[in-house]
Amino acid sequence: MDEKTEELRDIFMDVSGEEAVTESQEASRGSLADTDEAGVTDRLGDVVARMRERYEFQTELADEDLVTVVRLFYEGSDDETIAAEIGTDESAVVEGRLDLHLLRDEDTEAPFDLPEFRRRVADDDPSVTELAAEFDIDESRAAHYRRVVAAQDAARRVSHRFQSQFEDVLTDAGLSTQHAAGLRDDGLDEATEDIDSLDSGADVSM
């Protein structure tokens, strides 16, 4: 074998070796991704199951669908997109989100005094019909805002523990939770403002 032929052979071996390594690396990455995906789903499912055990869920969605709700919510998908993904309607997604303490900015955008609404619910536990009449909204909206207030209160009572657990799982998997973390902070600020409003209206006379 002359020098030129040997040089060409060495080049061929180098290229072939690199391709083999590259293919092996790609296969390894694919396997790792599959394992991580399964792990993320299992861990999110565990959090959902603990919440279902602790709270009386109103949603009819299965835990598997609720895991998808969590994933897509943190990806920044809107309720319509999530509903299409799991084959249900948008109202079912909203119901599931609220059971999971996952709130959006628009959930608390009310055409009335929401702190007063919260105070009324906390003090007197009125019916949906009474709330609708008092705040001049239809009963479906009154029921929605009552659910929103309840979800905020439930999340605050456990210091947003379950939201933090969802975010920990996704962060550990290298997925961004910045979108929903911002929503949670905004919701916490609004809830704090509501509490301040309640406190300012309290009777502090001795």
Rank of each mutant, 00 (worst) to 15 (best):
D36V: 14
G174W: 08
T81G: 07
E23A: 15
G187Q: 10
R97T: 03
G76H: 06
F57P: 02
D136H: 07
A110I: 04
D172A: 13
L188A: 12
L72A: 07
V40A: 05
I86T: 02
D186S: 11
A202M: 13
S197T: 11
D42P: 00
D189E: 14
A122L: 12
S200T: 12
M1C: 12
L72V: 00
D2Y: 06
V121A: 08
D42K: 15
V47Q: 06
R146Q: 14
I11F: 11
Y145M: 01
M13S: 09
L98M: 11
L44I: 06
V121E: 05
V94D: 07
E7F: 05
A38I: 09
E85T: 13
E6W: 09
V158G: 02
M13F: 11
G201K: 05
D113W: 03
D124S: 11
R54I: 01
T177P: 03
E60G: 13
D63G: 08
A180I: 01
S31L: 13
E130C: 02
D78S: 08
E109P: 00
I86C: 01
D63W: 06
R29C: 05
V169H: 02
A180K: 03
V128Q: 11
L131M: 07
D42N: 11
Y55R: 12
E167I: 03
E7Y: 08
D124F: 14
G87Q: 02
T171V: 09
D203H: 03
V69K: 00
S140L: 05
D34P: 01
D14R: 13
